[in-house]
């Protein structure tokens, strides 16, 4: 499916076309489930989140028209935001499977970057300009939805320090991407 095809499915979903919605689910649910699993780290939780994500997609599909995001990025953003809200609402993070995955946030290899295209190469290049642990914190925060508090604890720095790190990193990142 091309991005144009996904766009059509989203637009038809906004017109309450169930067949389009079913096809959209078939085409994108694996990616969105991957997002929910990564953030929530719990299968049952991720399955419930995915349900809620597709309910949102059905009811909010018309908002796609005002976004600058590519269709798949728009869907991923819905899933990510929902999963992060859900994980934040949880009392204690289901921390420990996570520790095992901790190593697994390296920058993608050159092949993956070629496949992902220019935009992707650029952001990874810009992340490289940051100090290593800060780049890792940005990636970890994005992919796993870690909070300032969790990041501060893991990196062994005060919360305010972590916030300053990440805010500076974000501004540097933007400056690099706009260069």
């Amino acid at each position: 499916m091309t991005p144009q095809d996904i766009t059509k499915l989203i637009v038809r979903t906004s017109m309450k076309d169930r067949a389009a919605f079913d096809l959209l689910y078939r085409q994108t649910s694996a990616k969105l489930f991957g997002v929910c699993l990564r953030v929530l780290n719990d299968r049952g939780d991720a399955e419930e989140a995915l349900q809620e994500v597709f309910v949102k997609i059905w009811t909010k599909a018309d908002r796609f028209a005002v976004s600058d995001l590519s269709p798949i990025s728009w869907l991923v953003a819905i899933a990510r935001n929902h999963a992060i809200d859900r994980v934040r609402a949880r009392r204690k993070p289901a921390a420990d499977i996570d520790a095992a995955l901790e190593v697994a946030d390296p920058a993608p290899g050159p092949e993956a970057m070629v496949v992902a295209g220019d935009e992707s190469v650029r952001i990874h290049h810009c992340l490289e300009e940051l100090e290593k642990d800060r780049a890792a914190a940005v990636r970890g925060a994005y992919l796993k939805g870690e909070s300032y508090a969790e990041l501060a604890e893991r990196h062994g720095v005060p919360l305010n320090t972590m916030r300053t790190w990440l805010r500076r990193s974000l501004m540097k990142l933007r400056e690099c991407l706009e260069r």
């Binding site: 694996a30 489930f33 991957g34 699993l37 995001l69 990025s73 728009w74």
Partner: peptide, 17 residues
């Protein structure tokens, strides 16, 4: 969302039940 979206390519696809 646009700026950071390329990072999402690191999410693996997992078939839901």
């Amino acid at each position: 969302e646009v700026r950071l979206s390329p990072l999402a390519s690191a999410y693996a696809e997992v078939e839901p039940p």
